[in-house]
């Protein structure tokens, strides 16, 4: 696609940047995300969620870690407050991500409610794509671009989840096993790749080990205990390393 001439009508420019945003949803990171949703559809089905519940959850929660935590909490028989607390802890990371995105997204006349609406599409993949590509989008077209990118990712993956859920029964066990491995591998690599400081790498290592250990020791609270203990430990390691470094 060529850049439309700058004197083209505003509606034409909007359509152009909307289209560019939609196309960005089908880039490599977008497709890798869809592979993780293939695995998630299988996970939710095994956990006993209905097709509509699974698709509803995909659109309304959107962040995949939050959904996997939610399914995990329900599987381990957590109560509503315990499940909400675990999901909330896993989603705190979204706040600093949105904080970082706002200056990139906001134009001179952007309304506040547009930003609140668009923030629902923020999760690791759309955030990484937006932070990388928004600087090359004209400022007045950025909410259009991100709206197209975010909504396309959400709607397309709702479709992916529905299709995989519907055909999962007809797949052989070995294929299902391979699909189930997609979600943890997606997180293992994307979490490590998006880490900004050593604390996040320590937190990953601690969490990976503490999760299964606490699953045995304190079922129902395994995620909370592993998250808080692993995160606190990682932060302490981060501070100790920072202190050892010459100022």
């Amino acid at each position: 696609m060529d850049e439309p001439p700058s004197n083209s009508p505003p509606s034409g420019r909007t359509a152009y940047w909307y289209g560019r945003g939609m196309l960005a949803a089908f880039s490599i990171p977008g497709l890798i995300l869809s592979s993780a949703f293939i695995g998630f559809a299988g996970l939710a089905k095994e956990a006993g969620f209905s097709l509509t519940q699974t698709v509803f959850m995909t659109g309304i929660v959107w962040a995949l870690p939050a959904k996997v935590v939610l399914v995990g909490a329900i599987l381990s028989g957590a109560s509503l407050p315990a499940a909400a607390f675990a999901v909330a802890l896993s989603s705190v990371r979204l706040m600093p991500m949105v904080v970082a995105l706002m200056p990139e997204l906001r134009g001179p006349h952007t309304r506040k409610w547009v930003l609140y609406l668009l923030s629902h599409c923020v999760a690791v993949t759309s955030w990484v794509l937006a932070m990388e590509r928004l600087p090359r989008v004209p400022r007045t077209m950025r909410t259009t671009y991100y709206g197209a990118l975010g909504s396309t990712l959400v709607l397309f993956n709702m479709g992916v989840v529905a299709v995989v859920y519907a055909v999962a029964d007809r797949l052989p066990d070995s294929v299902l096993a391979a699909l189930f491995l997609l979600t943890p591998m997606y997180f293992l690599t994307s979490l490590w790749g998006s880490a900004r400081e050593s604390a996040a790498h320590f937190a990953m290592a601690f969490g990976l080990v503490l999760g299964p250990v606490m699953h045995v020791l304190v079922p129902g609270f395994d995620l909370l205990v592993a998250g808080i203990a692993g995160g606190a430990g990682a932060y302490v390691m981060h501070r100790l390393r920072a202190r050892r470094r010459p100022a």
């Binding site: 870690p65 996997v68 935590v69 675990a86 802890l89 896993s90 989603s91 705190v92 990371r93 600093p96 997180f187 979490l191 880490a195 900004r196 400081e197 604390a199 996040a200 320590f202 937190a203 990953m204 290592a205 601690f206 969490g207 990976l208 503490l210 999760g211 995620l223 909370l224 592993a226 998250g227 808080i228 203990a229 692993g230 995160g231 606190a232 430990g233 990682a234 932060y235 981060h238």
Partner: peptide, 9 residues
């Protein structure tokens, strides 16, 4: 972020 990362891990 450390707590959130450990939880997802």
């Amino acid at each position: 972020r450390a707590v959130a990362t450990a939880l997802v891990a």
